[in-house]
């Protein structure tokens, strides 16, 4: 009786401990789950319709105001702003615009723009065909550049949305880039041996 109880207890403990470990894993699984969830709902305004939309016709009966804003996060010294603050577009038409960036420091730097859209409901309907935010942007000390963005507003955009704001936060990844560069160089060194 007592022995039987002990095996029963051991089995239960193993199960409960496994459950605890599984929940630890679940905590981490929430990260990709959250991304999937955001993809579907546009929850954080981060996940856009990527690439060219399958747009057949331009809806000329409707205009949507698209605004561009920029944010420099803490300790990002570049000048960064949209060249055009807002434009009116018909859903379905390709539109080009640019963003101006200047590295006003005395050192070579690399930056990465992170987009965000509001209202978040509109995020899945803003297709970026080509965007400077797809790549890291290096700039030499004291130089400037105009970075292109080609986008389409999906004609499926819900009727009640009349303004879409696209925001870019420009992050300094110089240190990160140096590290990557260094590892790449090391790798090259190794293969050549």
């Amino acid at each position: 009786m007592a022995e039987q109880n002990e095996t029963k207890t051991n089995r239960l403990v193993v199960r409960l401990a496994t459950a605890a470990i599984a929940m630890f894993g679940f905590g981490f699984a929430l990260v990709p789950l959250y991304d999937v969830f955001c993809d579907i709902t546009g929850l954080n305004g981060k996940n856009f319709g990527q690439g060219p939309a399958e747009v057949t016709s331009v809806d000329r009966s409707r205009t949507v105001k698209v605004q561009f804003v920029t944010v420099n996060p803490a300790d990002m010294p570049w000048d960064f702003r949209p060249t055009v603050r807002s434009m009116r577009v018909h859903p379905g038409e390709d539109k080009n615009t640019t963003f101006y960036a200047k590295n006003s420091t005395t050192e070579w730097m690399v930056a990465q723009a992170v987009p965000s859209v509001t209202p978040s409901e509109a995020a899945p309907f803003l297709h970026k065909v080509n965007c400077f935010c797809f790549d890291r942007q290096p700039l030499d000390a004291g130089t400037d550049t105009e970075m292109p963005l080609l986008f389409v507003v999906d004609p499926e955009l819900p009727e009640h949305i009349s303004t879409i704001t696209l925001s870019y936060a420009l992050y300094d990844l110089t240190d990160d880039q140096k590290v990557t560069q260094l590892t790449l160089d090391n790798d090259k060194g190794r293969t050549s041996l």
């Binding site: 409960l16 605890a20 929940m23 679940f26 905590g27």
Partner: peptide
């Protein structure tokens, strides 16, 4: 507790 304390451990680990 078994369901959520590991999630707390997960978030502080992240």
């Amino acid at each position: 507790l078994i369901a959520v304390m590991p999630v707390l451990a997960g978030v502080v680990t992240m």
